[in-house]
């Protein structure tokens, strides 16, 4: 369990090792504050969606899941993309309504990011990796939390660097996107050093 958690945060960091959610990563990292909010939203969504998708996968989609209904040879595995996206969209919607009802301040802080998360590939990617590696439901919960935390860590540190970068004197063509890519590359190099750390 701990090795899944540590690996998900550092070695297999969704943003820096698997390039997932990079569009959002580059677009919403101008300020640490907003990056932090988005990071929290991703942690929350990942921690819920990955285990729920694991339940859906093992209970409905996997070959033999319909044995109790007398259909042992039914394999709905090919439906997993549609199922996962549906689950993610539904959970984000429910999360948004729950936050609005019970935690209005948090909702104001996170509100505008939540719809973006539905089409963030880090969230779908997390569920697809869970399916590919055949995690159990509890492992999936740990993996979801860890991968969300890793993504949040990456975007917050990137935003912190980027705030400082605004005042640096760069060649005109390098301003903005090009420098963002180069900094992300260096950050990713830093994170990949964790791959050598024995667990």
């Amino acid at each position: 369990m701990t090795d899944i958690l540590i690996a998900a945060i550092f070695q297999e960091n969704l943003a820096l090792a698997y390039f997932l959610g990079i569009c959002t990563f580059l677009a919403i990292s101008e300020r640490v504050e907003t990056a932090f909010g988005l990071g929290l939203a991703i942690i929350a969504v990942q921690t819920i969606t990955v285990p729920v998708n694991a339940l859906v996968l093992n209970g409905v989609l996997v070959e033999g899941a319909w044995r109790w209904a007398g259909l042992p040879e039914v394999d709905l595995g090919y439906l997993r993309l549609v199922a996962f996206i549906g689950v993610i969209a539904a959970i984000v919607q429910v999360l948004e309504m729950t936050l609005d009802r019970f935690f209005p301040r948090l909702y104001v802080a996170l509100g505008s990011f939540l719809p973006l998360i539905t089409v963030n590939c880090a969230v779908l990617g997390g569920s697809l990796f869970m399916a590919e590696r055949q995690y159990s439901v509890s492992e999936a919960a740990v993996y979801g939390f860890g991968s969300g935390l890793g993504w949040a860590l990456a975007i917050v540190s990137f935003a912190a660097i980027r705030e400082r970068l605004r005042y640096s004197d760069m060649p005109a063509g390098m301003r903005g996107l090009a420098s963002a890519f180069l900094v992300t590359g260096l950050l990713s190099l830093g994170f990949s050093a964790f791959a050598r750390v024995p667990l």
Binding site: L16, F19, M174, L177, A178, S179, L186, S192
Partner: peptide, 19 residues
């Protein structure tokens, strides 16, 4: 072949295009 190179190459490419 590793992840950081992809970021750096695209960064340099964007820089070249914009220059």
């Amino acid at each position: 072949q590793l992840a950081p190179a992809a970021f750096i190459i695209i960064g340099l490419l964007v820089w070249a295009i914009r220059s």
